[in-house]
Write a protein that binds this DNA or RNA. Sequence first.
DNA 1: TGGGGAATTTGCCGTGGCGCAACCCCGCGT
DNA 2: ACGCGGGGTTGCGCCACGGCAAATTCCCCA
Lengths: 233, 233
Amino acid sequence: MEQQRDIEILKRSELFAGVPTPVLAELQAASFRKRLAAGDVLFRQGDPVDTFYIVIVGRLRVTQTTPEGAQVIIRYLGPGQMAGYSVLTGGTQHPGSTTALDDSHLFGWPAATIRDMMTRHAAIAVNAAAVLGERYHEMQVRLRELSTERVEQRIAHTVLRLARQAGHRTARGIEIAFPLSRQDLAEMTGTTLHTVSRTLSAWEEKGIVDSGRRRVIVCKIDALETMAEAADK
Amino acid sequence: MEQQRDIEILKRSELFAGVPTPVLAELQAASFRKRLAAGDVLFRQGDPVDTFYIVIVGRLRVTQTTPEGAQVIIRYLGPGQMAGYSVLTGGTQHPGSTTALDDSHLFGWPAATIRDMMTRHAAIAVNAAAVLGERYHEMQVRLRELSTERVEQRIAHTVLRLARQAGHRTARGIEIAFPLSRQDLAEMTGTTLHTVSRTLSAWEEKGIVDSGRRRVIVCKIDALETMAEAADK
DNA sequence: TGGGGAATTTGCCGTGGCGCAACCCCGCGT
DNA sequence: ACGCGGGGTTGCGCCACGGCAAATTCCCCA
């Protein structure tokens, strides 16, 4: 019943995939539930690392803020993904803030529980390494883009990535499944909302995208891919 | 003797710290040695992931190249650090190229050996997660800097980081212990060698650094730290 | 000791995109 | 129905940087 369903969910999560069912049952028993409304903060940058979460439903955003107030979006989290990776690496304070974009539902555990399970079951630690390696790799790609590409290409790459990760087929094209403002895109691509706005307007004119208030639909993916490559000068 | 010394080295590596000695002995027995001369390539971006390494002595550089030929420096590796992390995450091809800067000496293992050891000994997998989490975190910081800071601040942060990681006390100040060209700094900060050169010249004039052909010495760390923070507009 | 090539320096110019500011638009609450 | 506020759009001017080009310096090697 209830418990079985939880175990099914854990089995599909990035951290616990392939872990034997009895271990999942143990994890399930040790977990608590956390609900967040849209806009609620799961934890803030600098908070002590004491809890680990896995997203059941909903979408969260991880950001980092500079002392000057500038913000950068590190990543988005969806179902099955983990929040609070510092628990796995022994960090003492969260490097970023995590906020719910939709009403969300998560599993939570005390840090010690997860650390204990990870040392007792290599499969979990192996998954942890794989997930963190994957995130490390994603960051390498973003860093490379940010270093070597023009703003328009970066925005194109970012939109394509979001469409791939959270795309939802509609009549008009592929819609990004969560609210995404110009400001958000700017914080993902290292530019300003003004420039993002101008770029999207230009694309709109060419019929490549259809966008509005915190909403982006990609109409011509191939055209966008061309933009993203743009080897020209 | 020989074998004991190898085990001591492994014990101090980032991946095998805290692993029981018998396991280290097993690892030692399964390892081979790899020597590289300055400039030699350990593996290239896109190569199949079949070997894992740990640096014994020397300094290596990990870079990523775009189809257009632009290069980005992902990180530097020194003694005790691992090369070929994709082995740990199940990747099939190397995301970047790794090149020796000095004459270097490494331990090597077939990928399967390391994967096997990691699943059999949770401590190794836990270390792997910790190291990859740390690298992920470093990339977050760099991404934030690249997104929000001016060129001069980014160069300052980068030089400070290098001085911290590979700094060597000298009479004139803290010297970065490996050859570091303007081009290298440019590829770390997402700018051009021209701009780096101009910036270093300006600093030189103020006595903040003392630099020359592939060589940087930081004279006034506090002044450089001020540059790096530079909250001014 | 004399090249030769790589690394660096520097001036000059062009420009992408940021900052600012004004304005518009839409959805929501009362 | 109406007003308000959070997003979004757009025009304008400026400037930090990149691109280009030429000169210089320095190290390595014959």
